[in-house]
C-alpha cells in the first residue's frame, strides 16, 4: 500500500474530518485533503488525482451516496476506491451503498483499528484486481 497516496476526506462536520485526518496520519497517510460535502468534493476529485475517497453519507448539498454514484458514473473516477464512514446503519442503506459500488462501509462511532482493517482490505482487494 502506497503511504503517499492522496486521500480526500469528505464530511460536513469539521471535527469528524479532523479525527479521520489524524487517524489516517497515525496509520502513515499524511497526504490528505478535506471537503465538506459532495458538491465541493466532486470537482476536487475530477481535477485532483486522488487515490482514495473517504466520505460521510448524510451531508447537506450532495450526500455521500450521490457522490459515490457520481464517482462511479465518471469514467476517469470509476475505479477510485471509496470508503463510506457513516452513522447510517439501516440494512437497505448498506445494501444501496454496496449496489452503488462502495469498497468499504464503516459505521460511526468507529475505532482506529476498524479504519486500519478496512483500508487494508480495500487495498488488498484493489491490488489483487
Amino acid at each position: 500500500m502506497n503511504k503517499d497516496m492522496k486521500i480526500l476526506i469528505v464530511d460536513d462536520f469539521s471535527t469528524m474530518r479532523r479525527i479521520i485526518k489524524n487517524l489516517l496520519r497515525d496509520l502513515g497517510f499524511s497526504n490528505t485533503q478535506e471537503a465538506d460535502d459532495g458538491q465541493t468534493a466532486l470537482p476536487m476529485l475530477q481535477s485532483g488525482n486522488f487515490d482514495f475517497l473517504v466520505t460521510d453519507w448524510n451531508m447537506p448539498g450532495m450526500t455521500g451516496i450521490d457522490l459515490l454514484k457520481a464517482v462511479r458514473a465518471d469514467e476517469n473516477l470509476a475505479t477510485l476506491p471509496v470508503l463510506l464512514v457513516t452513522a447510517e446503519q439501516k440494512r437497505e442503506q448498506i445494501v444501496e451503498a454496496a449496489q452503488a459500488g462502495v469498497n468499504g462501509y464503516i459505521v460511526k462511532p468507529f475505532t482506529a483499528e476498524v479504519l486500519k482493517e478496512k483500508i487494508g482490505k480495500i487495498f488488498e482487494r484493489v491490488g489483487a484486481a
Binding site: Q89, K90, R91, Y105, F110
Partner: peptide
C-alpha cells in the same frame, strides 16, 4: 428495527452480498 447493530453486522451483511 431494520438497522444493524454495529460494525460486525455491517460486515456480515456486506459479506453476504
Amino acid at each position: 428495527s431494520d438497522a444493524v447493530s454495529g460494525q460486525d453486522e455491517v460486515d456480515d451483511l456486506l459479506s453476504s452480498l
